[in-house]
Design a binder for these strands. Structure first.
Length: 826
RNA sequence: GCCCGGGUGGCGGAAUUGGUAGACGCAGGGGACUUAAAAUCCCCUGGGGUCAAUCCCCGUGCGGGUUCGACUCCCGCCCCGGGCACCA
């Protein structure tokens, strides 16, 4: 018997070659099998794969391989989110062309992924920077433009100076750029937007369908982001002018308590009123306007207002109400105007106290009497209306409805809803992105590029010197003819946000070679994605945009799918020494080093074993050592016995087994059951733990196996074969090597997932726990399934129990059959 | 402030339709093998008590409660991570 050491490097390269040669991972539509679309978020080709990628893709590979063995026709593609700023920054810094930089990275990272042995159908690989890809993105954009879903407007937008481009709201995190972390400023610019707000309700309702299949926190984050609130619009006439101020409020029940009005400093009415104001007031308002938006949005920021000399009339009371420009009012939210009710809104309360404005109580709590002069804070809770004319005495929740009805009948207000979600700003003033396919003509205005002329190809020859979009400097690109009138025209030089590419790439994977549209009927077979796996950081970015795009594609007639991702798994970060791996902390562990040292199977196994997928994973150099030891130990066991059992095929005669053989058979069925159930629940860590436990068991009973008994040997063969199949999703190279050593042909991936026999998996002996008053006092091994009375009797007549309960009164005996007896004594 | 997670040995983590707390791995200690080391194999390892035990007490962030029995359920807190937040 020769015993060779475990050599992951040789084994892994051998199987990777064979998988590739046999096109094992390539799939076609096949109606005879149920389909399963398993997708992991595709990477940005930044240069090297990092441990977070490896974790993400290891999880995905378990799912894809397991489902394949379960008989599904599995689509498991991979590609590149290839447009983006780092490529362009590299060009400016090092003088390499972004395309060159990107393709080199793709090349390198693809090799890394292949070396890890993931089961991707590489024939479907896509890179979003290719004209064959973004051509369709441009077509969809034009269709959106034609439907009014894409539009251009001048608006205050987020500007990142260090990236020298604008950002969408979702891409500003805590006032900082999501990519580079530098402070974002507000600029007034004319920009392209996508009308995601048209889909606010659909996006919200869609979340209901995803409940239970997406993590709750992602649903909550999207819900918060959409920020739907119910309320009313109320119109306040302006004194001495035939104009009205429209406010949005969620508390129409407090309208009788309005004592001032506040407008966002940017509100157009403020400009009008300022005309009649003195210089000091003008300067004050100007000062408020100049306060940086990011600072203004902090709760701790001082609330300031300026009286701008005008009054409006409360349509309910006829009261004269002074109008302020106030820095806490956000122009973009609601109507940019807020009615001030100091008695019932904390912020208004503070404002009123600061500027000496009256406080009028209109909602009285049940249990106490509010007196304005004694109040220390606003009463924002429930109560009954007072000082509210015809609504006095009404419970405030009922009053909301009654007041809305009242003003709707009289025409100065109505019930409405408001959203926090704003339209998606997609223009980027950078080169390395998909060109926005429109031209500007002095005569015809904004003209979309006709379909036949797509794609608008990104010119290759541009100067990368930094400072502004290089496309503007390319005359051959900018100077063009108007598609309508053929006159001189200017081409749009903004490119699209790279989140646009990733909003529909999962459709493209279904038919990546389609040249008649973004995708074809094959998408109907594959979509939706059955299991999507990626980081939580995309909760309101990519995952929201993709849902929006899918809905748009449905409305444009491209698909019937409503939600792109049927189920979502968000994996945690890989951290080291309590912090996220980063260059600055110097705690990066490079996957290549680990693969070089231990092999891909060990690296994958460790990432799956060290923590459940959704939780953060602490990288441990010792921990991976343990997984390597485990594979070595498993290898040794198998090669100690493989020659003895290799030819022992055929049915096992259970009656002819030794005790050891019978035990092993039972434990093997338990193994199949445990691993199967755990994978179904994404509990890969406990599945692997049980395989480890099983291996310890194999060593323990090695001497109890009757090696002269052919049936015992058959059981050992059975055990080794099942291990190979069960470990295949976690350590596929190892699995195929074992499979082959057993004299089998083909790949484990092509085998059926093992099934277990409930009867054979059952323990015939169980440990009965005997408690007295809830404390464990004895344990006794008894056969499974004894009559209940018998189990109680065994407990009560146990020697130790007898001595402990002697002289005491047994008041109750509780039995959990085959598990536990609790004897309650007085 | 509001909304989600989470708090279990020296560490990563097991165990919840309420039923042996600490599986598995790491680290640590002891032993075997070896001239030696590495590798491997075996044993021990939550805290405390007792000469010792197959014994007793304590123990799942804290304080109460429900229950024969609580890591698990309920009430009130504390701490950590994340999201939202002057949103009218």
């Amino acid at each position: 018997m020769k015993e060779l050491g475990y050599n992951p490097h040789d084994i892994e390269l051998k199987w990777q070659k064979r998988w590739e040669e046999s096109k094992l991972f390539e799939v076609k539509e096949d109606n005879s099998k149920p389909k399963f679309y398993c997708l992991e978020m595709f990477p940005y080709p930044s240069g090297r794969i990092h441990m977070g990628h490896v974790r993400n893709y290891s999880i995905g590979d378990v799912v894809a391989r397991y489902k394949r063995m379960k008989g599904y026709n599995v689509l498991h593609p991979m590609g590149w989110d290839a447009f983006g700023l780092p490529a362009e920054n590299a060009a400016i810094k090092h003088g390499v062309h972004p395309a060159h930089w990107t393709y080199e990275n793709i090349d390198f990272m693809k090799k890394q992924l292949k070396r890890l042995g993931f089961s991707y159908d590489w024939s479907r690989e896509i890179s979003t920077c290719e004209p064959e890809y973004y051509k369709w993105e441009q077509k969809i954009f034009i269709e959106m433009l034609n439907r009014g879903l894409a539009y251009k407007k001048k608006a205050p937008v987020n500007w990142c100076e260090s990236c020298s481009t604008v950002l969408a709201d979702e891409q500003v995190v805590g006032g900082k750029c999501w990519r580079c972390g530098s402070e974002v400023e507000v600029k007034e610019l004319e920009q392209w937007f996508l009308k995601i707000t048209d889909y606010a309700d659909a996006l919200l309702e869609g979340l209901e369908k995803l409940r239970g299949k997406w993590p709750d926190r992602v649903l909550v984050m999207q819900e918060n982001w959409i920020g739907k609130s119910y309320g009313a619009e109320i119109e306040f006439p302006i004194e001495g002018l035939d104009r009205k101020i429209k406010v949005f409020t969620t508390r129409p029940d407090t309208v009788y308590g309005v004592t001032f009005m506040s407008l966002a400093p940017e509100h157009p009415l403020v400009d009008e009123f300022l005309k009649g104001c003195d210089e000091k007031t003008k300067r004050e308002v100007e000062r408020l306007r100049k306060q940086p938006k990011s600072a203004r949005l902090l709760e701790s920021f001082e609330k300031e207002g300026v009286f701008i000399g005008k009054y409006c009339i409360n349509p309910f009371t006829g009261d004269r109400v002074p109008i302020f420009a106030a820095n806490f009012v956000i122009f973009e939210y609601g109507t940019g105007a807020v009615m001030g009710v100091p008695a019932h809104d904390q912020r208004d309360f503070e404002f009123a106290r600061k500027y000496g404005l009256p406080i009028k109580v209109v909602v009285m709590p049940k249990d106490r009497e509010l007196k304005p002069e004694e109040m220390e804070e606003a009463h924002e809770g429930e109560g009954y209306l007072v000082n509210s004319g015809p609504f006095d005495g009404m419970y405030n929740e009922d009053a909301k409805k009654a007041i809305i009805k009242y003003m709707e009948e009289r025409g100065f207000g109505r019930g409405t809803v408001s959203y926090k979600l704003r339209d998606w700003l997609i223009s980027r003033q950078r080169y390395w992105g998909a060109p926005i396919p429109v031209v500007y003509c002095d005569k015809c205005g904004i003209v979309p590029v006709p379909f036949e002329e797509l794609p608008v190809v990104l010119p290759k020859d541009v100067p990368f010197i930094g400072g502004g979009n290089p496309l503007e400097k390319v005359r051959e690109f900018v100077e063009t003819k108007c598609p309508k009138c053929r006159g001189d025209a200017r081409r749009e030089t903004d490119t699209m946000d790279t989140f646009v590419e990733s909003s529909w790439y999962f459709f493209r994977f279904c038919s990546p070679d389609c040249n008649t549209g973004p995708f074809d009927e094959r998408a109907k077979y594959w979509m939706p994605v059955d299991q999507y796996i990626g980081g939580i950081e995309h909760a309101v970015l990519h995952l929201l945009y993709s849902r929006f795009y899918t809905m748009v594609l449905k409305d444009l007639g491209y698909t019937d799918i409503e939600e792109p991702f049927e189920a979502l798994l968000t994996q945690g970060m890989v951290i080291k020494d309590g912090a996220k791996m980063s260059k600055s902390l110097g705690n990066i562990v490079d996957p290549d080093d680990m693969v070089g040292k231990y092999g891909a199977d060990t690296v994958r196994l460790f990432l799956l074993f060290a923590a459940p997928p959704e939780r953060d994973l602490d990288w441990s150099d010792h921990g991976i050592e343990g997984c390597y030891r485990f594979l070595n130990r498993l290898w040794r066991y198998i090669f100690m016995h493989v020659d003895d059992v290799k030819d022992e095929r055929g049915n096992i005669d259970i009656g002819a087994l030794s005790n050891g053989g019978r035990e092993l058979l039972k434990k093997t069925h338990q193994l199949i059951k445990k691993v199967t159930n755990d994978i179904e629940k994404f509990r890969f860590n406990t599945a692997i733990a049980f395989i480890m436990e099983y291996l310890n068991f194999l060593y323990d009973i090695d001497n109890s196996i009757d090696w002269n008994n052919s049936n015992d040997r058959k059981v050992v063969r059975f055990a080794i074969e099942k291990i190979a199949l069960l470990i295949s999703p976690f350590a596929p190279h190892f699995a195929d090597e074992v499979w082959e050593k057993l004299g089998n042909t083909g790949f484990t991936l092509e085998q059926e997932w093992p099934t277990y026999d409930e009867e054979l998996a059952r323990e015939e002996m169980i440990t009965l726990i005997i408690q007295i008053n809830g404390k464990v006092r004895a344990k006794v091994d008894i056969p499974f399934g004894l009559p209940e009375e018998e189990q109680k009797r065994i407990a009560l007549y146990n020697d130790r129990v007898k001595s402990l309960i002697e002289g005491k009164k047994v008041t109750k005996v509780i039995l959990v059959p085959n598990k536990l007896v609790n004897i309650v004594v007085a």
